[in-house]
Design a protein around this nucleic acid. Structure first.
Length: 575
RNA sequence: UGCCCGAUGGUGUAACGGUAGCACAACAGACUCUGAAUCUGUUUGUCAUGGUUCAAAUCCAUGUCGGGCAGCCA
């Protein structure tokens, strides 16, 4: 496109690739000013002590997203594995799977903080030699006491003024395993009276005689977060170390540590607000509790806000990325409405999911004027939003199933589905009229509907003489395949379960999972591949269960319902 | 009552001294062989008080409210 002639207008300003935010603005400014030689290297640094959740997705999209947007930008995946007591390979594997599934790639830039244990140790020696760190014999309890409080300055440890030689010797012996857990720490020598508690001689190393999932028994000395993280960032040449708000008060320590060490590179720590989602818990500790206590079936239970759970629930990576883009990045600690997440899946699935007919709570319908044994093949559109998805054949016969809730003997005003004597269109088929009902003599429950069809109302015949208000879905009894369908709802019935004090498990929604059996699906679903996503017309988006499906047994998970303005107005009227 | 950070409709965000905009949600209507989708429209906002300025959501001051920090967790 030649714009050389567009002399009447100034050149358009360069457009950012996507929505920008204060982090991207800051990085763009750094690139412009030549800071870090104009390079952009970010990192996503999970601790492998749990599965990744939607809050991590926000961070992943931010860090990997920024790397993608910048020429030669790179994002490292680094496992912050400095606490062997809580970490496990199961988690390092799931984390990689989830990041990849979200659509991001770290190429050969995958690291472990534990890769740097030896380097970290030598840098610690450097601190000791310069009088910037010392071995402290205070017990954990004593250390708390010496630390003071926010309004009370701390007191210096009696071990603070040991000689360099003594510190070196002690630190060597700590590594050699001569001391018991908790008996000694290596501490930074900063300022016990600092108003910032993180600067009151924070611990850099502690003794833990625990095997590490990667280094085995090689170490009994493990670095603390502030030390390991800042130095790892610097070793990797990270330019922008993006983390959440609670680390804001750690930044002076991050900078202090790097200022003491002979590493030329000094990354910039930037903090943003972590995600809070309504009706959802985003605390790894509490999610772990749900898993361990069997409240959910596992980290990938479709009700879990984990990436694995959302995947099994039927969410697409695209929808999660769209969600993360929509929520933005700020320093404001807010509460994002879960409906925004739900909107993001619906938006994606509406464009991509094939439509099918599935009757979840079937009621039998006999078409009295349709010959027994005859089968008519009807054309059905696979996706009205995507003509390329084509059409399929749907068998129609004398006996059908429709959704029980699509028939009402005593309908309220505005109900335009099937009623006694009333008419409704069967999607892609005919207009039928209900001419009778069969009830169970004992319970009075409607067991079967007797209907007649109008042969002049066959779908696709173009001119339709009559219009009816309602169109409902159906499945031919003889051709239907049976399935189990799991209806998921929010795990908690309060908006902010994370804020609860006391027993937060009383806030669980007892109806978060409803299992329906004997559901009747159109025959094309017989070969549904695990993970395949569909729209069950008029009901919602569902996906074939990928975890505990057995051959011959179909199980579908409901991802999200369709919007339902009828149900909404009906429930409002009943209130 | 120490330190750090923040505050724009119901919710999440944009506006970088010059017309407060977008998305979700809600509501109303149009359309509809999915009560979906789509389309149109409507309601609702700069925490407060001062100051600087021709002009303040934006800069300054004070206050209010909210969040974070006292693991040998990350």
């Amino acid at each position: 496109m030649g714009h050389e002639d567009a002399h009447s207008n100034p050149a358009p300003p360069p457009q950012p690739a996507g929505p920008t935010d204060f982090v991207r603005d800051l990085i763009a400014a750094d690139r412009l000013s030549g800071k870090h030689d104009g390079r952009v290297i970010t990192r996503f640094p999970p601790e492998p002590n749990g599965y990744l959740h939607i809050g991590h997705a926000k961070s992943i999209c931010l860090n990997f997203g920024i790397a993608q947007e910048n020429p030669d930008g790179v994002c490292h995946l680094r496992f912050d594995d400095t606490n062997p007591a809580r970490e496990d390979v199961e988690y390092v594997n799931s984390i990689q799977e989830d990041v990849r599934w979200l659509g991001f790639n770290w190429a050969d830039k995958m690291f472990y903080a534990s890769d740097y244990f030896e380097k970290l140790y030598h840098y610690a020696l450097h601190l000791i030699r310069n009088g910037k760190a010392y071995v402290c014999d205070l017990s954990p309890e004593e250390m708390i006491e010496y630390r003071g409080a926010p309004t009370i300055p701390g007191r210096e440890s009696p071990f603070r003024n040991r000689s360099v030689e003594e510190n070196l010797d002690l630190f060597h012996r700590m590594r050699a395993g001569e001391f018991a857990d908790g008996s000694h720490t290596l501490r930074a020598n900063i300022d016990m009276t600092s108003p910032n508690i993180h600067l009151r001689d924070p611990a850099l190393y502690r003794i833990r005689k625990v095997d590490h999932h990667r280094t085995g028994a090689a170490w009994c000395l493990y670095p603390m977060y502030d030390y390991a993280h800042s130095v790892s960032d610097a070793i990797e040449g990270i330019t922008h170390s993006i983390c959440t708000l609670e680390f804001e008060v750690h930044r002076p320590l991050y900078d202090w540590i790097l200022n003491q060490l002979p590493i030329p590179h000094h990354p910039q720590q930037i903090e943003f607000a972590r995600l809070n989602l309504s009706y959802t818990l985003l605390s790894k500790r509490k999610l772990l509790q749900l898993v361990e206590e069997g409240v959910v079936s596992g980290w990938d239970d479709p009700r879990m806000p984990t990436i694995a759970g959302l995947r099994r629930r039927g969410y697409t990576p695209e929808s999660i990325r769209a969600f993360c883009s929509r929520i933005g990045v700020t320093k404001f600690n807010g509460l994002t409405d879960i409906s925004l997440l739900e909107f993001s899946v619906r938006e994606d699935l509406n464009k991509t999911a094939p439509r099918v007919m599935a009757v979840l709570r079937p009621i039998r319908v006999v078409i009295e004027n349709f010959p027994e044994g005859e089968v008519e093949e009807l054309d059905a559109i696979n996706n009205p939003e995507d003509p390329a998805a084509g059409v399929r054949k749907l068998p129609f016969s004398r006996v059908l199933y429709i959704e029980a809730e699509d028939f009402l003997e005593n309908p309220p005003k505005g109900f335009f589905r099937l009623t006694p004597g009333g008419e409704v269109r069967l999607r892609y088929a005919y207009i039928i009229r209900c001419v009778g009902l069969v009830k169970d003599p004992a319970s009075g429950q409607v067991q079967e509907l007797r209907c007649t069809l109008d042969p002049n109302t066959h779908s696709g015949t173009g001119h339709v003489q009559r219009k009816v208000k309602g169109t409902i879905h159906w499945v031919s009894e003889a051709h239907a395949v049976d399935a189990e369908v799991r209806l998921y709802d929010r795990l908690f019935h309060v908006e902010t379960p994370g804020d609860a004090e006391g027993d937060w498990k009383t806030l669980l929604n007892p109806h978060s999972l409803q299992t329906l059996t004997g559901c009747k699906l159109e025959p094309s679903l017989a070969g549904a591949k695990p993970g395949a996503r569909y729209q069950f017309e008029r009901q919602g988006y569902f996906c074939a269960n990928s975890s505990d499906a057995k051959p011959g047994k179909l199980v579908f998970n409901r991802t999200v319902t369709l919007r339902d303005s009828w149900a909404k107005s009906a429930s409002q009227k009943s209130k």
